[in-house]
């Protein structure tokens, strides 16, 4: 049994929230540079250039990559041999989000759903905790922007719809989103599970490194096929027309009920921000 003080979790969440909002991952920078080199549309190439410039300014001048610093989604992989001391895990995470958004000059974007009154400190974060083997804690802070989240969908298909139905829904979701979610996007697809599990599968798919191959060869082939289909829409960078509407499609799949075929499409803007910390 390893003891971890929850104040270390607060500190880690705070730093991760600030870092995620100012520094894009190497995988994404590489994908944007590749886009600038390969996009057919001249306007699209210019958009890629500006996005890389934006990332540089954000990193060097400590300005958030995007003014929408997101709703903080926090994934916790909690080793079952860890004993947390000094307080409650969820309280510690919320404190980290509160401190990170305040001290990092990040926008507080949460409000009461009916009165629309801002909560003032960007809490509550949405927290998903999974108990895993081992004596470590992995925290992944994902500032999720509203624009791309609004364009995401869960479809409860009939099993008869099959793979063709899934493809059609993925393309339809991207097409309807158009310029709204800040393309070039990353498309997270969750297939199977239940209504909410499909959405969670899709969200977790967004965390995979852009440019990485799905370890399941069947899904890897589907991801390539879906990406080709999505990029035939012509929406392009910033929605101004082009070949690169999406940088990647990532799929997670699990079994579902014999009556169901849930498909979730979680759309992520090009500012795919997430920061992982292991304690």
């Amino acid at each position: 049994m390893r003891e971890i003080d929850v104040k270390d979790i607060t500190a880690a969440v705070k730093e991760a929230a600030i870092a995620a909002n100012h520094e894009l991952g190497e995988d994404l920078l590489h994908a944007l540079a590749h886009g600038q080199a390969t996009e057919e549309s001249p306007t699209g190439r210019e958009v890629f250039r500006l996005l890389l410039e934006n990332a540089r300014i954000a990193r060097e001048n400590r300005i958030p990559i995007c003014q929408d610093c997101g709703l903080a989604v926090v994934f916790v992989d909690l080793g079952q041999d860890v004993h947390l001391v000094g307080g409650h895990l969820n309280d510690a995470i919320q404190a980290g989000v509160r401190q990170g958004y305040e001290e990092g000059y990040l926008r507080k974007s949460l409000c009461h759903p009916l009165t629309r009154k801002n909560t003032g400190d960007n809490t509550p974060a949405v927290i998903y905790t999974t108990i895993v083997p081992g004596d470590r804690v992995k925290l992944t802070v994902v500032p999720k922007g509203g624009g791309s989240e609004n364009m995401s969908r869960v479809h409860m298909l009939r099993p008869a719809a099959g793979l063709a139905g899934i493809k059609a829904k993925v393309v339809e979701t991207v097409r309807e989103a158009g310029a709204n979610p800040c393309p070039p996007i990353i498309v997270g697809v969750g297939i199977g599970g239940t209504f909410e599990q499909a959405a969670l599968l899709a969200k977790k798919a967004l965390l995979r490194e852009v440019g990485s191959k799905n370890p399941d060869p069947e899904l890897a082939a589907l991801e390539e096929e879906f990406l080709t289909l999505v990029n035939k829409t012509g929406i392009g960078p910033a929605g101004l027309g082009g070949r690169l509407t999406a940088l990647a499609v990532h799929i997670n799949m699990m079994p579902c009920h014999i009556a169901s075929l849930p498909v979730a499409v979680n759309i992520q803007c090009h500012a795919s921000r997430h920061k992982e910390v292991i304690l």
Binding site: L51, I63, C66, A238, H270
Partner: peptide, 12 residues
């Protein structure tokens, strides 16, 4: 249209 997600750049 301004470029979505280029908030640091536009702020300049």
């Amino acid at each position: 249209g301004a470029i979505g997600g280029a908030g640091a750049l536009i702020s300049q």
